[in-house]
C-alpha cells in the first residue's frame, strides 16, 4: 500500500475533488482531508489479508456474455429523454461552452 496515505495532503484532496468534478471550499478541503485520513487509516487493515495467490472478484455473476436477439426494438423517444433536461435546444441537451 502506498506509504503516504495516512498523511493525505490538502493538495491531494484538491486533486481528487478536481478529478471527481466536485467543487469544494478551502474549509471543506481541510475537513475532508482529516476525515479521509481517518477512513484510510481504518482501510489499512486490508493489508492484514494475505492475497498473494488470490484472484480478484470484480463481480459475482454466474452468467457470461448475456446477449439479446439482434432485432430492432423501440427506444426511449427523444421527447421523453429530454423531459428532465435543465436546458435544451431543439432535440439537444444544451451545455455551456467547452472552450472559451
Amino acid at each position: 500500500m502506498p506509504e503516504p496515505n495516512a498523511e493525505l495532503s490538502s493538495r491531494q484532496v484538491e486533486h481528487v475533488a478536481r478529478l471527481a468534478r466536485l467543487g469544494i471550499t478551502p474549509d471543506e478541503v481541510d475537513r475532508y482531508r482529516d476525515q479521509l485520513r481517518k477512513i484510510l487509516h481504518h482501510i489499512e487493515a486490508l493489508n492484514r489479508a494475505d492475497t498473494t495467490t488470490v484472484p480478484a472478484t470484480a463481480h459475482p455473476l454466474e452468467e457470461r456474455n448475456v446477449m439479446r436477439d439482434d432485432v430492432r426494438e423501440a427506444c426511449l423517444p427523444v421527447e421523453a429523454a429530454l423531459e428532465n433536461a435543465p436546458s435544451r435546444e431543439d432535440s439537444y441537451f444544451k451545455v455551456k461552452a467547452i472552450q472559451e
Binding site: 500500500m1 496515505n5 486490508l46 489479508a49 492475497t51 488470490v54
Partner: peptide, 20 residues
C-alpha cells in the same frame, strides 16, 4: 486514481474473493 489502484481497489477485490 493512478498509483493507488493496485493497493486499494485490486486488493479489496482480492479480499472479496477471500470472503466468498
Amino acid at each position: 486514481s493512478a498509483g493507488y489502484y493496485d493497493a486499494y481497489y485490486l486488493q479489496a477485490q482480492k479480499v472479496r474473493t477471500l470472503i466468498i
